[in-house]
Amino acid sequence: MAGKLLSIGECMVELSQAGEGLLRKGFAGDTFNTAWYARACFPADWQIDYFTAVGDDPMSSDMLSMMNAAGIGTSLVIRIPGKTPGLYLITLKDGERTFSYWRDTAAAKKLADDADHLRAAIESADIVYFSGITLGILAPEAVDTLLSEARRAKAMGKMVVFDPNIRPRLWPSKEYMLKTIEDGARASSLALPSFDDEKVHFGDKDEQATVARYKALGVENVVVKNGPDGVTLAFGSEPVIHVPAVKVDKVIDTTSAGDSFNGGFLARLVEGGTPAEAAAHGAAVAARVICHHGALISPDLLPK
Rank of each mutant, 00 (worst) to 15 (best):
W36H: 10
K110C: 15
D45Q: 06
Y176E: 14
P81N: 01
W171V: 09
K158Y: 10
A70F: 06
F99V: 11
R169G: 04
A38M: 12
I166E: 07
G132R: 08
T105W: 12
V161Q: 01
A53F: 06
R79N: 07
R152M: 07
M156F: 11
L146P: 01
M63A: 08
L89E: 02
P140V: 09
E123G: 15
S75M: 13
I127A: 07
W46R: 06
L118G: 13
A44K: 05
A155L: 03
W102P: 01
F130C: 02
A107Y: 11
E175I: 11
S124H: 09
Y101Q: 00
E141K: 03
R169C: 08
G86M: 08
F42P: 02
S173G: 03
L111E: 15
A70Q: 05
D104E: 12
D116P: 04
G82R: 02
R97M: 05
V54G: 01
W36I: 09
S65W: 06
T84I: 14
D62F: 04
D116T: 13
D45F: 11
T91K: 03
A70D: 05
W46T: 14
K109Y: 12
L118V: 14
I80D: 06
G55K: 01
L170T: 06
D30S: 10
P172G: 00
A153L: 06
D113R: 11
T84C: 11
E149F: 11
K110E: 15
V143H: 02
S65V: 14
R39W: 08
I48S: 01
M59N: 02
S131V: 05
F51I: 15
I90Q: 01
E141I: 13
A150W: 00
A120E: 02
G55E: 07
T98D: 03
K158M: 13
D104S: 14
S65P: 01
L89H: 02
S75H: 12
D45S: 08
A121I: 12
G86E: 09
C41P: 08
A35H: 03
K154E: 04
W102K: 01
A139S: 06
S65E: 09
E123I: 15
V143A: 06
P164E: 09
T145M: 05
A120N: 00
A106C: 10
D30T: 07
K158S: 10
P168M: 10
G29D: 13
A40L: 07
F99L: 12
I133H: 00
P43Q: 04
S65Q: 09
V128A: 10
T145Y: 00
E175G: 07
L118R: 12
L87D: 02
F162K: 04
R169F: 08
P81G: 05
K93C: 10
A153P: 03
A139W: 06
P140C: 04
D30P: 04
G55Q: 11
G29S: 14
R151D: 02
S61Y: 10
L118E: 09
M63C: 08
G71R: 00
I78R: 07
T134F: 03
I133N: 00
S124E: 13
V128S: 08
A112R: 11
G136M: 06
